[in-house]
């Protein structure tokens, strides 16, 4: 079942309902489907197209623009090693070489046990903590080869299951907009002056 499951369809509709145009929910829904399946399936893109009112080709066009979306299964843990300037200055190349040797795969590869996919990544917004890497987008700062080995051991042994969910799950907290508190989606069809703005607005 690689379309969105029933629970996720409910969630998807709730997310769509937050935008003036359904198509805006495309990326959140792609994340939702990646959370469900670990990667973006072909059927999920068709399904998302149906939900947001776009063709499958349009969904694919959007999805392939963003590097977080994977179209084939990846490891349970996506290991991204940053190689941009600050990290490179402080040993990113060595860290990557070590990671390739330790995991036995080249960047872009997945270990035979399906646990780890290793990737070269661009700047992760942690430049002062170089060299930096992420596991399923959780930051690991000031990495050393020893820390890397320890991290891989901990992940493989399941010691970090509570902290790092499997690939596809991003935030474990979702925004809730309670219906009784919501201000409501801005209407594009019936534009109105905001209630708190003096009307008519000064045109100076």
């Amino acid at each position: 079942m690689s379309r969105l499951n029933e629970a996720n369809v409910i969630l998807a509709k709730e997310i769509i309902g937050r935008y003036p145009k359904a198509r805006s929910a495309t990326i959140p829904l792609l994340h939702l489907s990646q959370q469900q399946n670990g990667y973006i399936t072909s059927e999920a893109m068709v399904h998302i197209g149906e939900l947001v009112g776009a063709t499958s080709a349009e969904i694919l066009g959007t999805a392939t623009f963003y590097e977080m979306f994977k179209f084939e299964p990846v490891g349970k843990y996506l290991v991204n090693i940053c190689g941009t300037m600050s990290c490179q200055l402080l040993g990113a190349d060595e860290l990557m070489h070590h990671a390739e040797a330790r995991l036995g795969v080249k960047a872009g590869g997945t270990t035979a046990d399906g646990l780890f996919t290793l990737e070269h990544a661009e700047c992760q917004a942690a430049c002062t903590e170089a060299p930096n890497m992420q596991v399923n987008y959780r930051h690991c700062h000031r990495m050393t080869t020893a820390a890397f080995d320890q991290l891989i051991d901990d992940l493989a042994a399941g010691r970090l299951d509570g902290e790092i969910p499997p690939h596809g799950t991003l935030a474990r907290v979702r925004q809730q907009i309670p219906a009784d508190k919501a201000a409501g989606v801005a209407s594009l069809d019936a534009p109105a002056q905001p209630a708190w703005m003096p009307a008519p607005e000064a045109t100076s």
């Binding site: 990326i27 907009i177 409501g184």
Partner: peptide
């Protein structure tokens, strides 16, 4: 979620005429 519950976001914020929703949106790497 906390701010909605506390009445800082949403309809008639802090009892005023001011109403607005804040929607959290996710990027995907670009």
């Amino acid at each position: 979620n906390e701010a909605y519950a506390a009445g800082y976001i949403g309809r008639n914020i802090l009892g005023s005429q001011f109403s607005v929703d804040i929607v959290l949106h996710w990027g995907a790497g670009a």
